[in-house]
Simulated scan of single mutants.
Amino acid sequence: MAVRNLSLGFDFLRLEAGFGIPFSVLPYAETDSYGWVFVVGLANTVLVAILGIVTATVLGFVIGIARLSPNWAVSNAALLYIEAFRNLPLLLHVLIWYNVVIRALPPARQAISLGEMAFLSNRGVFLPWISTGLSACALCLVAIVLVAGIAVILYRSRRRREATGEGLASTRLTALWIAAVLATLFLMTHASVHFEVPRLRGFNFVGGIALSPELAALVIALATYNASFIGELVRGAIEAVDRGQREAALSLGLDRMKTLRLVVIPQAVRLLVPPLTNQYLHLLKASSLATVIGYPDIVNVFVGATLNQTGRAIEIMGMTMAAFLMLSLGITGLSNLYNRHMRIVGR
């Protein structure tokens, strides 16, 4: 660095970025600093990770359970999905969903309508949304309060069940807690709540929430690819539960779905959490493929555009590595907390 007359420091983060970001969860303008570019890119990465993890988990559980279906067609359809999706490179998934599927959709005026509520076009996916008029920070605070309250209710219910054999009415208490928090919020802020449905105005849709083509393609690719692995993890965890557990449940008069939901899956989850965490970490790190299709994640806008303009490779790479490390450790920490929560008492 001394030979090349380069200095080491983070003073560049206060400089004006001067370039635009086509899609951002947080408000952004070209006059914002490189430090805010880092935050915006990180928020976009977190958005992809959350959407991908939720979608892949739901789809993976459905596929894993379908693999064990006694119906020949359902079981083999799930097997075909797994073998077809997990044996293709993830980069190819991203390119196919973006170039072949999303970009091949009709323009906004001829968009594919899903019950006049959602619309698919080459400009993205347009979905209905509940508008509150609150800022993003306020919504995040409300979400944290709701999640914390629900976690406390579930924890106390579990502890009481272990002590007395009878748990709290957690479903009813959770519904009351959500209603109380929302009512208090809207009474204090006088926020207006209304349901927005996308409507065509001119050459594009207005209202609701819009997912850019890049975001939609990336989330679908990550979800469908990782769901094929999660499906096999779910199948393996279910089959690892002792067969006598199923037979005991069936002998008590439970049907197959109740046996899965009440007896088998709760035991399988204890075996499923560690490998499922590894899959979540893979999905998070694979989100960096967003730069291939131009989605403005942290790698695209910070490692790409910011590095090209400032030349601060060591600082930018170090910050990006630290961001991914903290996100990965966060996922691992939440997984460990859940693992301890599901641990059998006395072991």
Rank of each mutant, 00 (worst) to 15 (best):
residue 1 M to C: 09
residue 7 S to V: 11
residue 8 L to C: 06
residue 10 F to E: 07
residue 13 L to I: 08
residue 19 F to A: 12
residue 20 G to A: 14
residue 24 S to D: 06
residue 32 D to N: 13
residue 35 G to K: 10
residue 35 G to P: 09
residue 39 V to Q: 04
residue 40 V to H: 07
residue 40 V to K: 06
residue 42 L to F: 14
residue 46 V to A: 11
residue 46 V to S: 03
residue 47 L to P: 01
residue 49 A to D: 02
residue 50 I to D: 01
residue 51 L to D: 02
residue 56 A to N: 08
residue 62 V to L: 15
residue 63 I to D: 03
residue 68 L to A: 03
residue 71 N to M: 01
residue 74 V to G: 00
residue 79 L to R: 14
residue 80 L to S: 09
residue 86 R to T: 04
residue 87 N to C: 05
residue 88 L to E: 02
residue 89 P to Y: 01
residue 92 L to E: 00
residue 93 H to V: 08
residue 94 V to L: 11
residue 95 L to Y: 08
residue 101 V to R: 03
residue 101 V to D: 05
residue 104 A to F: 12
residue 105 L to C: 08
residue 106 P to N: 13
residue 110 Q to W: 14
residue 115 G to L: 10
residue 115 G to M: 09
residue 115 G to T: 04
residue 118 A to W: 02
residue 118 A to C: 01
residue 120 L to I: 05
residue 130 I to N: 02
residue 137 C to K: 11
residue 139 L to N: 08
residue 139 L to Y: 07
residue 147 V to D: 06
residue 148 A to R: 04
residue 155 Y to W: 12
residue 159 R to L: 11
residue 160 R to S: 02
residue 161 R to E: 10
residue 162 E to V: 09
residue 169 A to H: 10
residue 172 R to M: 11
residue 176 L to K: 01
residue 176 L to M: 11
residue 179 A to H: 01
residue 192 S to Y: 13
residue 193 V to Q: 05
residue 194 H to C: 07
residue 194 H to M: 14
residue 195 F to P: 06
residue 198 P to Y: 12
residue 202 G to S: 08
residue 213 P to T: 05
residue 215 L to N: 00
residue 218 L to D: 03
residue 232 E to Y: 03
residue 238 I to Y: 00
residue 238 I to M: 13
residue 244 G to S: 09
residue 245 Q to W: 05
residue 245 Q to D: 01
residue 248 A to P: 01
residue 254 L to H: 02
residue 259 T to D: 03
residue 260 L to C: 00
residue 268 A to D: 11
residue 270 R to D: 09
residue 273 V to H: 04
residue 279 Q to T: 09
residue 280 Y to R: 04
residue 282 H to A: 09
residue 283 L to F: 15
residue 287 S to C: 13
residue 293 I to H: 00
residue 299 V to G: 01
residue 301 V to S: 01
residue 305 A to Q: 13
residue 311 G to K: 05
residue 313 A to E: 14
residue 314 I to T: 10
residue 315 E to F: 10
residue 316 I to S: 04
residue 318 G to M: 12
residue 319 M to I: 13
residue 320 T to F: 07
residue 325 L to A: 15
residue 331 I to D: 03
residue 332 T to W: 15
residue 341 H to S: 09
residue 342 M to W: 11
residue 343 R to S: 07
residue 347 R to E: 13
